[in-house]
Amino acid sequence: MKIAVCVKQVPAKDAPLHIAPDGTWIRETDISFEMNEPDSYALEEALRLKEKHGGEVVAVSLGPERAKQTLKEALAKGADRGLHIADEEFYRLDPLTAARALARALEPERCDLVLTGLQSEDHGFGQTGVLLAELLGLPHATIIMSIEVQNETLRLKRELEAGWFQWLELPLPAVLTIQSGINKVRYATLKGIMAAKKKEIRTLLRTELLPSFELTQKLERIYVPQKTKKTEFLQGPPKEVAAKLLEKLKHEARVLGSS
């Protein structure tokens, strides 16, 4: 089974973020980057499927030069090779354009299965995986909680709202977006890290895969939301506090009528 996993490199969760002067992306100095956590579950799932059914795992990442680090991490954990779609201006791409570039890179690979995380932790569009399926002309399912492969068929468990699940079957090849927490992600091993040095990372240029594109959506501005919630502690003897509270409920929160 040949499996491709899309892994995105995103700002580390601990990074104090500051918005870049043009207002459409963050300032990248002084922060570090890591593998998008939802994608790490997709990678783990791919590695487990390979261990069970044999085959190959190809890790794919669209991003600037630094994204190679995330591919190296995937290789250290057990992916067989890496595919880097280089684009220094990756953050300008909308999900459709990103999916188009990924599809162009993945078409010649003829994978049996393409896995992505549910969404990215930076832009959080949650669309790239689904759009990729459409562009590759493959069936897809989202929010996957478990995967079983029987012959040429996938038996899948999806998470629905309110504690409900859905079981469904899908033919191979297919695209799945993986729910976070589906598995317990493994640690890279020393041998894996050493072996990763000898594995291939092929670089494709986004400008060659997709020389021109028209954005279907444009990011106008990123901003920190204004704080609107306010917590206030009322202090004093219970009787006074109760009176104050009543005042506030009537005149500030206006949830009680002021009869």
Partner: peptide, 9 residues
Amino acid sequence: PKPNYTPGY
């Protein structure tokens, strides 16, 4: 040990 337990080298 958790499911991804990996003993030290």
